[in-house]
Nucleic acid binder design. Structure first.
Lengths: 138, 138
DNA sequence: TTGGTTGCAAAACGTTTGCATGTGC
DNA sequence: GCACATGCAAACGTTTTGCAACCAA
């Protein structure tokens, strides 16, 4: 549990009630969240925010490397999650869209060899598995 | 080089001038293409197609497992590529968006163990690497 | 005080759809 | 002939933007 203000200051992002509230929601979530999901959770907390502000906050957080943005297959909404020390991959149910985190990332080694082979300066990667979760494949 | 008509028949897809032309473009491309890119290439060839037809063709091809659809980071346009015998992953330049195919897929083994661990019936996966290509990182 | 942040409404963008017409089989 | 494919325009859902008011530093 970190201080939201600190995280923002660390990245030289001005603090605000909205930004702290968004960080709080992200921190408590085990999965990446869509903008409208974040927006709804803010509303539930009786925070009155406009949806465009949520979009702007997510863009800011992402460009400051506080969050990461991703788009899963067959769903055009972007999803955001806090960048934590341990980066995560998910296995996603093609029926219910639930995202389950995987234990660890198998790509560290691979990146080195691919970097050599392609001449790319590799900055990141994205890995998602898709399938039917145990509830949906009965 | 396969016959476009055959591929469509094989998948019990009705053939048409437009569908064949789209398949021809996909076959000649080394990278996944966006709808508007396909649309423009059709226009260059003096084929008059409407953009909605291209969308419908891509949806049809994808639901018939002739093509696959994907969305890369920081670009909300979907990209399509022919499903060939060898399935591919790409390393994508974060500056110029160029997609370079990787040699092989390292995930076969991994899928099995994850399937065991999570109870998912795994149907597919998505792996993308991001970085600066050798032209852009000078 | 000053420049970043917000709300609102409108616009932009990629994509989908309804409907009438055309076409492969 | 009939089901499916197409063109056009309108609708859709997500995201972005212009502008005026607001607020953190």
């Amino acid at each position: 549990m970190f201080k939201k203000g600190n995280l923002l200051e660390l990245k030289s992002c001005r603090t605000s009630k909205n930004r702290k509230a968004v960080l709080d929601i992200l921190e408590k979530s085990k999965n990446p969240l869509t903008v409208d999901c974040i927006y709804n959770r803010l509303r539930e907390k009786k925070e009155t925010v406009s949806i465009s502000t949520v979009y702007r906050i997510m863009e800011k957080l992402t460009s400051n490397n506080i969050t990461s943005k991703s788009i899963i297959m067959d769903d055009k909404k972007a999803r955001y999650e806090l960048i934590r020390d341990d980066h995560k991959h998910y296995i996603i149910c093609i029926k219910c869209n639930q995202m389950t985190p995987l234990e660890n990332c198998p790509l560290g080694e691979l990146e080195k060899s691919i970097s050599m082979a392609t001449g790319f300066n590799i900055t990141g990667h994205k890995l998602e598995l898709y399938g039917e979760c145990s509830s949906c494949n009965k």
